[in-house]
């Protein structure tokens, strides 16, 4: 009996060894799972599902989308960080899971537990007011904030979230204080409050404001981007209005730390080609998201830069958790 157990164990070890080498050589052998740390039907999820088809074509194996929502993207990110590093678990993670939440503490992973593959998408951020508001541009906004002495309200999907931090960089630069008003229902809750005049201003993504903006219910004060957006040519950047502040939510692909280099190379190549798919790009355009591409090296560098930039603002907002390991 004991002998049998030994043979069995040896067999298991051997198989495991084989599958390790096999994984690197002719990856992929079985379906690849893409973990989306947000609920089905959300922005990340729609992107993932639109990308699944072209990615399947590239990899030659089925791509399975798994939603692991919760904790502002941290539940799913933690899952990826602890998954087996064999290339069969890929995370579609945005900056809140890779940067923001880590500094707020209480998590069981850090940035170092994940290997960056590619940054492939940027979601611009707008500062928006109700069209009945007397605020017409950045200068008006600063004046109004100073007059109200900290009580000018700003709708945000979540305090310390992906839209909130970039705009706080502007507030810091302008030397103003604004009262954030979060909403449990995220962006859709914020826009309801803004159109209903329950808040003075809000930070929102293009897909969230599109319908109401077209109907003339909202005025966009500025976009936190380098250049004006193609779909919103009339909206000036903050830079044009005298404040060199940019920031956006970005989405990226990561794998667990320790994934073999050959596997990562195959994945990066497949992702690069898949993100050029015409149907996928059409979906992006409809959502108002902007395609972009940064490979592993550029992305790793950018991640550190963005982290430093955001950490600065997180500390000044007193959101930084000193107990972070």
């Amino acid at each position: 009996m004991k002998k049998l157990a030994t043979i069995f164990t040896a067999a298991c070890v051997l198989t495991a060894g084989f599958s390790m080498t096999a994984a690197a050589a002719d990856y992929p052998q079985r379906p690849v799972t893409v973990v989306v740390p947000w609920g089905a039907g959300g922005g990340s999820d729609i992107i993932a599902r639109a990308l699944a088809k072209p990615l399947e074509k590239e990899l030659g194996k089925p791509v399975i989308i798994t939603n692991k929502p919760g904790g502002s993207g941290t539940v799913g990110t933690s899952y990826v960080a602890h998954a087996r590093p064999d290339g069969y678990t890929v995370g579609l993670i945005n900056n809140t899971g890779l940067i923001h939440q880590i500094h707020y503490g209480g998590l069981d992973y850090t940035k170092a537990d994940l290997d960056p593959l590619a940054l492939f998408l940027r979601v611009p951020v707008f500062l928006v007011v109700n069209s009945e508001s007397p605020i017409k541009n950045v200068d008006d906004y600063i004046k109004a904030a100073k007059e109200k002495n900290g009580s000018l309200t700003l709708g945000v999907a979540a305090v310390g979230g992906g839209t909130h931090l970039p705009i706080e960089m502007f507030f810091k630069a302008a030397g103003i204080k604004v009262q954030p008003m979060p909403s449990k229902s995220g962006g859709s809750g914020v826009i309801t409050s803004l159109v209903g005049n329950h808040i003075d201003s809000a930070v929102l993504h293009p897909s969230e404001v599109y319908g109401q903006y077209k109907a003339g219910a909202l005025r966009i004060i500025g976009v936190l981007d380098e250049k004006r957006l193609e779909t919103y040519p009339d909206v000036p950047t903050f830079k044009e209005q005298g404040f060199n502040v940019t920031g956006q939510v970005w989405r990226s692909f990561v794998v667990p730390k320790g994934t073999p280099k050959e596997v990562k190379d195959i994945l990066v190549k497949a992702l690069e080609n898949a993100t050029k798919d015409a149907t996928y790009l059409e979906t992006l355009a409809k959502l108002g998201d902007m395609p972009t591409w940064m490979g592993p090296t550029d992305f790793a560098k950018y991640l550190d830069e963005d982290d430093a930039k955001l950490l600065d603002i997180i500390k000044s907002l007193n959101l930084y958790n000193k107990n972070v390991k």
């Binding site: 039907g41 859709s188 409809k286």
Partner: peptide
């Protein structure tokens, strides 16, 4: 208005956007 009333309609917004229809 393009404003979802509950969690199901919040998901439906995505369905409309994909069709190129901005609810609003």
């Amino acid at each position: 208005l393009g404003i979802p009333g509950d969690s199901v309609t919040a998901v439906l917004v995505g369905g409309l956007m994909i069709q190129g229809l901005a609810p609003g």
